[in-house]
Design a protein around this nucleic acid. Sequence first.
DNA 1: AACAGAATTTGACACAAATCAAGAAATGCA
DNA 2: TGCATTTCTTGATTTGTGTCAAATTCTGTT
Lengths: 250, 250
Amino acid sequence: MQMAHDDVHPVSLQCGDCPIRHRAVCARCETDELELLEEIKYYRSFEAGQTVIWAGDKMDFVASVVTGIATLTQTLEDGRTQMVGLLLPSDFVGRPGREAAAYNVTATTDILMCCFRRKPFEEMMERTPHIAQRLLQMTLDELDAAREWMLLLGRKTAREKIASLLSIVARRDASIKLRAPAGRMTFDLPLTREAMADYLGLTLETVSRQISALKRDGVIELEGKRHVTVPNMDRLMEEAGDDSDGGFLI
Amino acid sequence: MQMAHDDVHPVSLQCGDCPIRHRAVCARCETDELELLEEIKYYRSFEAGQTVIWAGDKMDFVASVVTGIATLTQTLEDGRTQMVGLLLPSDFVGRPGREAAAYNVTATTDILMCCFRRKPFEEMMERTPHIAQRLLQMTLDELDAAREWMLLLGRKTAREKIASLLSIVARRDASIKLRAPAGRMTFDLPLTREAMADYLGLTLETVSRQISALKRDGVIELEGKRHVTVPNMDRLMEEAGDDSDGGFLI
DNA sequence: AACAGAATTTGACACAAATCAAGAAATGCA
DNA sequence: TGCATTTCTTGATTTGTGTCAAATTCTGTT
């Protein structure tokens, strides 16, 4: 649920007093719609590892991530699981018009969510076209991200998958710090090896091996298990195997 | 871009005189919005195999498939390609607010498309909230389909992938014939082995081998290369490996 | 009906990633 | 500080799918 820089819109789904420093939050937000959103919102927090909601459960709210990271996963009966979305600050969860959750939502770090009761939110959408239009833009961005991910899952090698994920995380980190992802970059991995595996359609052993290989080949440097520095972003993006320069997932 | 039965909406993006017999087309369509759509629409047809548009090309229209089947594909520089969408009658192509096409669109059968010039369409969206709301529903459905596909690409075996695709095509075929997909079913595959491979993230040899295996095991019967009959839909859906009963892709 | 070209199947083999199995490093807690 | 638990790494081996190559079937054309 990412949005491009030029997508910033007078009406964000984020509320005025949420402490978010994110490109999607717009300074010009003082509108009627926001006033209305204020009235039906409430906050919920979850600890790292906690499940926000299980697929199939009744979901009487939609929400926006304020801080922390959550994941969307799907599973087959035998337990194989695939992550289908990574929720970062300002990302939207839930679907207007849908009773039950379609995916498992899990907090991977401590998170704070800004929730809107679903019925009032739907009624507001009826009355205020801007919200539906904003949500459409966000959903279209998400769809592009999902399709980019389909290319990764269907056609990239394990090494390319890891490099892709690293360059996405690096880019996201850069965008939070409001600078272009270039040259030497340093960031923390927000996911365990297992979560990375579920995202990439690999096993955690393969994830570990490929990270070691990228380290051995000087593409990345590691301090501890989670702190990564990329000496040369261009090299990493070459390894990722695609030329998509930015409008990418996350 | 599929829509659920209960999603039928007074405003469809399909035009009144398009000869479509499809669940998404609503009988109650005689509205002002449709009148407006009439004014900015035109038709284009393409032959099987023709490219409708290349990724990156300027795209000054959005469109709806009237008849035939088209595909959305993405490629890496070295030629590896992944299909990211299958467009069936009534499905929507293109994105309001986007100058260039994000994917290759190719006709796999002869197709007729109902196009709307992009600028007037965008202006109409500004004025008529119903269109944005309808488009939001369709996009959310597509996003669900894409995520279902991510599970398939990331975690299913080749045999499960083939069974999934066959049961999707069978279900789509049943929905066109307005009956539930159950018991013995017969349909034609609308895709070549290569297109199936690109959809499933496999090679065409593996697709061929798995189809042969399903035939050998009595899960399907083949007449020629394209005409399939499934003696027992439940068996096929078991092979597909998931219990998702219908809100599935296409 | 015979041919050409495309689409599909099948076989032999190679290889990337999964699986199974230890062990090491990091983290949390008493 | 030391212990228990989780997370991660590495090794040995297996397996599913890809690759390369050839044969077969299908389709359309003259």
